Computed example of a mutant assay.
Amino acid sequence: MEALISPFLGVDQAWMSAATFPPHPHAGFSAVSYVFLDSETGIENRDNIGTHNLIRPGGLHWAAAGRGIVHEEVPAEVGKTVHSLQIFVSLPSNRQDSEPFALSLEPQDVPVVHLPGTKVRVPAGSFEDTQSPLNPPTDVTMLDISLEECVELAVPIAAGHCAFVMPIFGTAMVDGQSFSLNDLRVPVFPVQSTPRTITLQVPKGSAKVMVFAGPPLQSSAT
């Protein structure tokens, strides 16, 4: 599976209302936190390189661990729930032992593309002619897509990029196949030499999905 979704090492969807990620180390890859807009509060983030910031709903924090970083993430307000993704991304081999650093993107700086019945937030990479201002150490695209009933959206994937779709809520059709949060697998699109499009549809109700894409990397990160 890793070969199919590289440069992504893993993605975890989390709802937390208490301290869930006490101080813990990473090395050799990037740990990315993306907080959904429906979160009741943000994440208070701190690390051993001097970062201490609030990841507000709709915002993103990218910790490039390099040779090693220790960070901690807790809900900013006691008793309120954070809905977020923890995304682990390979670093290029020549950056896996580099000095760690952190990047942040505030909610208001995440570009948004509005189409009929569709909203696409672009925290990383690009969608159509819209580019995220984030300049991460690994070339990836992350799209937060909200779809209303009976809407169809074509998502372009560049040649040489793999991609996968992660359902967040609701049921969506991905290239004609139905997927929801309860499914044990996600739609994966291996690298191909020509550009392609992924077609998203919502037959009933509304749905949210994340689309991840990027060129594969070889990584020895652990």
Results as ranks from 00 to 15, higher is better:
residue 61 H to S: 11
residue 18 A to G: 11
residue 22 P to V: 08
residue 42 G to A: 10
residue 96 Q to R: 15
residue 76 A to V: 01
residue 75 P to W: 10
residue 196 R to T: 11
residue 139 D to L: 14
residue 142 M to S: 03
residue 129 D to P: 02
residue 99 E to D: 14
residue 102 A to M: 14
residue 184 L to K: 14
residue 97 D to F: 15
residue 207 A to I: 06
residue 67 R to V: 01
residue 2 E to C: 04
residue 204 K to E: 15
residue 15 W to P: 00
residue 114 H to P: 00
residue 31 A to P: 07
residue 208 K to E: 13
residue 56 R to Y: 02
residue 5 I to G: 02
residue 155 V to I: 15
residue 180 S to N: 13
residue 85 L to G: 07
residue 23 P to M: 08
residue 118 T to A: 15
residue 29 F to H: 13
residue 202 V to A: 04
residue 74 V to W: 07
residue 4 L to C: 02
residue 141 T to N: 11
residue 84 S to C: 10
residue 1 M to A: 14
residue 87 I to S: 08
residue 64 A to E: 12
residue 53 N to P: 00
residue 21 F to R: 14
residue 110 V to H: 05
residue 32 V to G: 03
residue 155 V to K: 06
residue 124 A to S: 13
residue 40 E to Q: 15
residue 45 N to K: 07
residue 15 W to N: 10
residue 127 F to E: 01
residue 13 Q to D: 09
residue 222 T to V: 13
residue 221 A to H: 10
residue 54 L to Q: 09
residue 61 H to V: 01
residue 143 L to W: 09
residue 87 I to M: 03
residue 136 P to F: 05
residue 10 G to T: 12
residue 7 P to T: 02
residue 95 R to Q: 15
residue 129 D to Y: 09
residue 159 A to T: 01
residue 93 S to K: 15
residue 11 V to T: 09
residue 99 E to L: 13
residue 141 T to P: 06
residue 134 L to N: 01
residue 52 H to V: 06
residue 44 E to H: 13
residue 206 S to L: 01
residue 61 H to Q: 15
residue 94 N to V: 06
residue 119 K to A: 07
residue 147 L to D: 06
residue 148 E to P: 03
residue 31 A to T: 14
residue 215 P to G: 03
residue 158 A to L: 12
residue 204 K to H: 15
residue 109 D to W: 07
residue 20 T to I: 09
residue 100 P to T: 08
residue 60 L to R: 05
residue 200 L to N: 00
residue 15 W to L: 13
residue 72 E to K: 12
residue 61 H to K: 01
residue 150 C to M: 12
residue 161 H to C: 10
residue 110 V to I: 14
residue 8 F to I: 11
residue 122 V to S: 06
residue 39 S to N: 07
residue 153 L to P: 01
residue 111 P to F: 04
residue 98 S to L: 11
residue 127 F to V: 00
residue 1 M to E: 13
residue 2 E to P: 00
